[in-house]
Each structure stands twice: as structure tokens, then as C-alpha cells.
Design a protein around this nucleic acid. Structure first.
Lengths: 334, 334
DNA sequence: CTGTTAGCGCTTTCAA
DNA sequence: TTGAAAGCGCTAACAG
């Protein structure tokens, strides 16, 4: 039924070892022999069995990717960066959605490890003690992607979320705004939630603006929650003149909410966010945002993982990618 | 270093076979023995090696997924449907982007087959003879996802793209429009391109409207190409009063182009599309669209694949999922 | 209910 | 430059 390396060996009149060498591009094979083997392979339609190879060589050329939700544009972009680089280095990726749920994350990490992945890319919610524990029992390298661990022991690739938020709010402040609302993610989320909120507070503080908790609403990163948060702000007796959103999608919700209310962006209210997904230029007015290089985060973390898997020494196991402000049309003077 | 089933057997004072039974939930094990084994597993921190298991059992509980581009929202949604169901049936997925490029597709199909996936989900451009050939040499089931093959030999899950387009254009016609532009995908793309274009033409014909090739522009599914196409229409001496776009994203580009031009949607020009991605409700006016159930296409195709992998007999190997019109605000009277 | 024993298809010394 | 042979860690008859 299935053609094995042994069949090829017999057909070509050589040993299994020789066929193996040919298949693996080992130079120690006489060209003539190589040719014979290739012909036999062709004739028999031989297809190497990667599972058997994996068992014998203890390498699967497969890496595991734990992702919150592939249907989220932001993560999908990271995934694409990962896959492109993986592909370049001849790795395949096993993708697992874990929805930032700790239990699910731990479960898939173990499954992935059972499948003998050569490395693991983890993109999730908080990295708890339990996560670290699971990582420790893996004897393959792990890279955190778009997250970091508190104690900074695990290699990671991310942006500085706090600074990104700080910079975004600074843009608003520079335009003269002093009443600045924030649509935040859950504070349980260390990167997209908590850190960005901290950046917001620090920017306010630096500018000598007092923090008003009435001006902070927690959303769930989705469009609708941006709409809801904005609705709340608009009904405030003294509503903010600018809003900082933790994500593009909520920002777009906010913009539409403002427009539906009969006000204009940025004339009446300015809006800025962090992300700069493709959607940012797909709204009117186009969204000014701090760009988070999602594709690069994926690509760089995969590249880092390849180095780790090859046991190359890496100087910077904690890489912080730069973010930048992309000025479009949603921010104006106070 | 690594603890194997043999180590567990020794530790528990039983044979490998018994450990294997315990690990695989085989009922033929005395509860007491089972307990002993579990304790040994716990004590040693044993983690079954899925690669060895795969080699011995000839099953990897892994399926391959060939996808055009995971960073495209539409496909990401399908992927999520696939993964959710895969997960439910204890399969993992190896994800490969192939950008609808034939060579790349063939290449990843072979890699996936080498990795001994238990089944394959193919989402791509055209299914050529070469594809069929590659599928034939696989001795695992294949399901086409959001595509179909011409001769209809391969199981598949998709919507009726021609009918979806027909229905969309009908909506416009019913509102009295007779001058209807189309922003199409490339006609090389059988499903999203050609079929939708055919549906457009048939709707026109059915309504007795003559086809005018000036009113058809080919885009690349992206926002910008929607803008460009619409710009072209707006400059026409006699511009259309309604536009049918093959995808949401191009439709949104068209809407913004119309608005930037100083006209209103739907008062001046109506816009409808096929997709109904989350973005459809993230524009003003919200987009009326024919909904393509992407998540379901993924879920159903994965479900179908599980049946095929279990060698269950399936009555309908060609499933056509229903589409529906989601009326929002972008379509009005002529 | 449990153990013995062949493999699964390949890589990798080691020797020639 | 090539071959022989010993595993890799597990499953799956088969026997008891």
C-alpha cells in the first residue's frame, strides 16, 4: 500500500541508509547512485513519512502556536507573520485558539508538547505561575508573542504597551485637550488592558491633568463596546473633548457613536487609538493611531524561535519592537 | 531525560501494554491497576509521545488546512470555524497559507501529506488537474472548503456564489435600479470572482436590463480597489445609481469614495455586497449584504471531514450552505 | 484483566 | 561512498 524507504532501496538496489541520505541531501552519495535513487523514488511515487522521521530524529519541523482568537484581525495578522517566517525556515505551524482562557491555554500547551513540536509560540492572556510551570516541563524553546511575563524570564517579542498608550494620549494633550476619556480593555489583560491604562494615567499626570475615573470605561475590544462607552461619555454633564481607545475597533465604534449623536470628529471630539489595523484607514474620518507592528511581532518572534531551536545564542531574548504614531484625520485641536 | 511508557510501566510494576491501555482509556484495566499507573504517571511526569503513537497507530489526530491568507478576515473566520470543530473532535490543525498560488498550494499539500495528516481541508483558488492529482495520491480524505471543483468529484462545503450574487443584484433591481455597476473580483477566481459575476449578469438579464461592460470593474477584494472602481464609475458620463460589490471590503471603499465625492449612500447611490463580515456593520451607512456563513462553512467542512476520516458514509458530500440577505442601510430606491 | 512481542518507517552510529 | 543494525516510543494483535 504505502511505499516506504525500504521499497525504494530495493527498487534502486541500494540500502535504506543510502536512500535516507539522498532524501536528506547528504552530500556523501555518488551522483550516479543519487540518480538511481531519485529514479526509484519517482517510479514508486515515494513520499517520506515525516512522523517516522520525527520519531527517529526527534525533530518534527513543526512549531505550536497558541493564539487567543484567529478570527480577530490583530492576531490573524500576527499569525501571518509567524507563518511566513516559519515557512521560510521550513517549519509548519499547529494553530490553537485558546481565547485567553487559562485552562484552555494550559491544555493546548500540553497537547502541543505531546505532539513533539520543536518550539512554541505563546500569545495569550496573563502568563501565570501555572503557565511557567508548563513551559518549564517542555524541553523545547518557548517565545512569548505580543505578551510578556512579569518576571521577564521567558523570551518574548512585543511592543511597549504602556509607552504606546502614553504617546497616544500625548498627541491629544499636545492639541490642547485636557478632558480626555479612555475606552480601555479589561485591566486583567496585562498588555492590551492594564499597561495601556497605565500609559494613559501617566500621560495625564505628566501633563498635570488630574485623573477622573468617570472618564474611563472598560470595553471588550469590540466595536459595540466602543459605541457603548462613547454613549456613556456623551451623556456626561461635562463630556470629554477627546477619547483614547485601547483598540482600533472600539475607536471606530466611538467615532460612529459620535457621528450618530450629531457631532463631528475631530471638530467636536478627537479620537485616537492603539493598533493601526487595516481598518484604521477604512473609516471616515480616517483614524489616527499608534501603530502596533503586528506582522512584525509575529515574524520576529518566529525568527527568534528558530534561533532558539537551533541553539544559537541570542543576545536579546526580550525584544521590544518600536511603535509609531500614524497621523490621519481623527484628531484635532481642542 | 524523557520518560517513556516503559519507565512508567517499570515504576508501576506493570507492562507497557497496560500503561498504554490506561493512557488510551481502554476499559479493560482493573481500577486498582489503573490507579497505580496514574500515580506512576504523575510521579514521573510522563507525557505521551504523540509522534510515536502516530507511527504505531497510523493516526496523527492532526488535519491539514490550506488557506489562501489567514490575515484576510473572511478566511480567518472560516479558520476559526474549522478549529473549533476540530478541537471538539480532538484534532489539531496545521495551518498553511498558500495565497491562492497553485505552486505553493501543491507544495503545502505534499508537505501536509508527508506529515501524515489524517485529513485535509483545502481552501484555495482553482482546483486544477494537478490538484486533483495530488489529492488522489493522498490516502486520506479531502474536503474543499469555500471552493468547489469543476467536475464535482471532491467533497466540498460552500455557498452558491452565483445565486448569492444574483440575489444581491435582485435587491437592487427591486428598488427600481436599472443602471447597476459591479465591482468584481478577478474572473480567474471561480467562486468569488467568476461565479459572482455570472450571477450579476443573470440578474440583469432576468430583469431585461442590457449588460454594459463599462459598468464592470475588476478589483482585488481590497478596500482601495473598491475606492478606485467607484472613482471610475463616478466619472462616467452616465454613472450607475447602484453598485454591487463582490466583497464587503470593496463595498466599503466604494461607499467612502461616494461620500468623499460629495454624494450620499443610499440617497444618491445604493451599495450592496456579498460577505457580511463584521465590518459590514462598522460603516456608516451600515452595509446591506448577502451573508456568507463563513464560520459555518469552516465548521461544517471540518465536521464533514471528521465523518470521512471515521469512514462513516455521508449522503451529501457536496454541501451548499444557504446564504441570506441582511438588510441594513446602504440600499435605497432609485 | 494483563503481558509478550512484533512492528510502524525512518535516522544514525559504526564498520567496511 | 555505502551498508548493517540498533533503536526512536508507542500500539496492537495474540496468548494466557
Amino acid at each position: 500500500m504505502t511505499v516506504t524507504i525500504y521499497d525504494v532501496a530495493r527498487e534502486a538496489g541500494v540500502s535504506m541508509a543510502t536512500v535516507s541520505r539522498v532524501v536528506n541531501n547528504n552530500p556523501n552519495v555518488k551522483p550516479q547512485t543519487r540518480k538511481k535513487v531519485f529514479e526509484a523514488i519517482e517510479r514508486l511515487g515515494y513520499r517520506p513519512n515525516a512522523v517516522a522521521r520525527g520519531l527517529a530524529s526527534k525533530k518534527t519541523t513543526t512549531v505550536g502556536v497558541v493564539i487567543p482568537d484567529i478570527s480577530n484581525a490583530i492576531f490573524a495578522e500576527v499569525a501571518r507573520g509567524i507563518e511566513d517566517i516559519a515557512n521560510m525556515y521550513h517549519y509548519n505551524i499547529i494553530l490553537c485558539n485558546a481565547d485567553k482562557k487559562k485552562d484552555k491555554e494550559i491544555r493546548v500547551i500540553n497537547t502541543l508538547l505531546e505532539k513533539q513540536v520543536d518550539g512554541l509560540l505563546f500569545m495569550g492572556g496573563t502568563v501565570t505561575e501555572e503557565h511557567s510551570q508548563a513551559f518549564k516541563t517542555a524541553n523545547v524553546p518557548i517565545v512569548l508573542c505580543a505578551t510578556t511575563d512579569e518576571n521577564g524570564e521567558i523570551p518574548s517579542v512585543d511592543i511597549d504597551h504602556e509607552a504606546a498608550a502614553f504617546d497616544a494620549v500625548q498627541v491629544l494633550i499636545k492639541q490642547g485637550h485636557t478632558s480626555i476619556g479612555m475606552i480601555s480593555g479589561t485591566l486583567q489583560d496585562p498588555a492590551n488592558g492594564y499597561a495601556r491604562f497605565q500609559g494613559y494615567k501617566r500621560a495625564l499626570q505628566t501633563a498635570g491633568i488630574s485623573y477622573d475615573e468617570e472618564l474611563v470605561r472598560i470595553g471588550n475590544y469590540r466595536y459595540e463596546s466602543g459605541v457603548d462607552a462613547m454613549k456613556y461619555f456623551l451623556e456626561l454633564p461635562k463630556r470629554p473633548t477627546a477619547v483614547f481607545s485601547a483598540t482600533d475597533e472600539m475607536a471606530i465604534g466611538a467615532i460612529h457613536c459620535i457621528q450618530d449623536f450629531g457631532l463631528k470628529v475631530p471638530e467636536d471630539i478627537s479620537v485616537i487609538s492603539v493598533d493601526n489595523s487595516r481598518m484604521a484607514s477604512m473609516v471616515r474620518p480616517q483614524l489616527t493611531a499608534v501603530a502596533q507592528p503586528m506582522y512584525d511581532i509575529g515574524a520576529v518572534s518566529m525568527r527568534l524561535l528558530t534561533k532558539l531551536m537551533k541553539k544559537e545564542t541570542v543576545e536579546h531574548a526580550k525584544v521590544v519592537l518600536p511603535h509609531e504614531i500614524v497621523t490621519r484625520q481623527s484628531v484635532g485641536d481642542k
